[in-house]
Design a protein around this nucleic acid. Structure first.
Lengths: 259, 259
DNA sequence: TTGAATTTGTCCGTATGTATT
DNA sequence: TAATACATACGGACAAATTCA
């Protein structure tokens, strides 16, 4: 280790002041260091023990600060390796009358892919039946999938289809990796989005596992209904986007119609 | 304390098992208790010391679990009072060509109000100038406001307007509490939304203070451009919604046009 | 392949501060 | 004022994952 290496973070010895908790002051210090560009994307933070010594606090106090920044998505901690600055560039995902997954993120990532996680036929819940305008307890196909961009998980989607109209859509999707192509296989030439609702919350355990997220990560949740040319609902889907990697864009129709 | 009070949470003595951290097991236990309705909305959790004893762990271990659930928005901790179950009902906020704040949440809350936080004239940043289609470094009015529903903060918005066209819009907004009314005062009969982008992240310190949020809370961030009848941008705004209280709805135009 | 060093993760115990009741 | 309950900070110990000689 060289003696004159640049200080990764300000090392001003902190003391209780102004009623602001020490761990908050440390978190702010690291956040500022990142904003000022002292620490670039992907770079490694000094070990917790070093930081503790520099700030003149216990290791646990530094850990509280780091934990908060991991929650915010500013840092990423890896056991045995270190703590790193987290890239925050987001892929823009357009939501419009003609929302299509592959079209949406086309060109923004070097590679995109989709993988089916699960597919089964079940009895429609009250919500699903309403969304698909089916009789209560109609059989529906439930299809769960994960999409990746540049090898990293981007979103996880659960879709429901009328089982009588789209029986076996899971197998088609498994082959094509595309909802649009799968629907076309059943004679759906075109479909449009009737409605989308958007909310945000922390990812639960299952989502963390499926999307390789740290506990406490945020997901952007969209619930959407797609309808065919005659206006009949054909797909109800709940998609959980990794909030750190995605920005949704509600664009005017004309732009995408031109495609 | 009565001897036969209902157990607020399962009190199975936990031990290291399956490689799952103790504090995670406890968090899952509490989460499950809420899902199963053992703990209702607003009810108080037993004190940390009690929980620690019941689970057979140190108080800090329980604190880790509670901290995670506070982050998730499941619980709310109040120093000196206790820890409570957090209400999670959301207000639906429609986003469409004719997005209007007051119209949007009308009828979903008993009362709504807006308050101006700050208003000043500044030189447009590169982004703001681009969004408003102004020459670089043009003077712009920056207006910051907070909206409440049923007395609780719902969102905080920062808007920019061309200072030459909308000079003094701050004073009008302060009186009317409505952007639509303020713009009408400057002869803008009608305006529509050109674009909206939506992302989610943790609230920063300033947002936590302004919106009365616990550190670690999530905000849904929308960036929007409104244009007048001739297509000229008149407002660029960044709105931070409290994610626990809001769900955005991208609705087809026809519905709101009918209003 | 092994094993030591490094680094983050979990848990315990204790003490003190601060807000509420 | 006193008791209660959450917040912060310190110290120590060991586990688990990674890296590297």
């Amino acid at each position: 280790m060289t003696a004159d290496e640049k200080p990764a973070v300000a090392s001003t010895r902190l003391r209780k002041q102004g009623g602001v908790a020490l761990w908050r002051q440390i978190a702010d210090g690291i956040r500022q260091g990142i904003r000022e560009g002292v620490l670039g994307n992907g770079e490694r933070l000094p070990p917790e023990t070093d930081l503790a010594e520099r700030f003149g606090v216990n290791r646990h106090t530094v850990r509280s600060a780091i934990a908060a920044l991991v929650q915010e998505g500013v840092l990423r901690a890896e056991q045995g390796r270190g703590t790193f600055i987290q890239n925050k560039e987001r892929i823009v995902y357009p939501i419009s009358k003609r929302t299509r997954f592959s079209r949406g993120i086309d060109g923004q990532a070097r590679s995109t892919s989709g993988r089916m996680v699960d597919c089964l036929t079940e009895v429609a819940s009250e919500i699903v039946a309403t969304m698909l305008a089916l009789d209560p307890k109609s059989p529906v196909v439930k299809l769960k999938s994960v999409s990746l961009a540049d090898g990293l998980p981007l979103s996880s989607a659960t879709s429901w289809f009328d089982s009588r109209r789209f029986e076996g859509i899971g197998k088609i999707y498994e082959k094509t990796g595309s909802i649009t192509a799968s629907l076309a296989h059943f004679g759906v030439e075109d479909y449009t989005r009737r409605s989308t609702t958007i909310s945000a919350r922390h990812a639960d355990e299952i989502e963390c596992r499926l999307l390789s997220l740290a506990p406490g990560a945020i997901v952007l949740v969209t619930k959407a209904i797609n309808i065919d040319a005659s206006g009949k609902p054909i797909q109800f889907s709940i998609t959980r986007f990794v909030a750190d990697r995605v920005e949704l864009s509600v664009s005017p129709e004309e732009k995408l119609e031109a495609l």
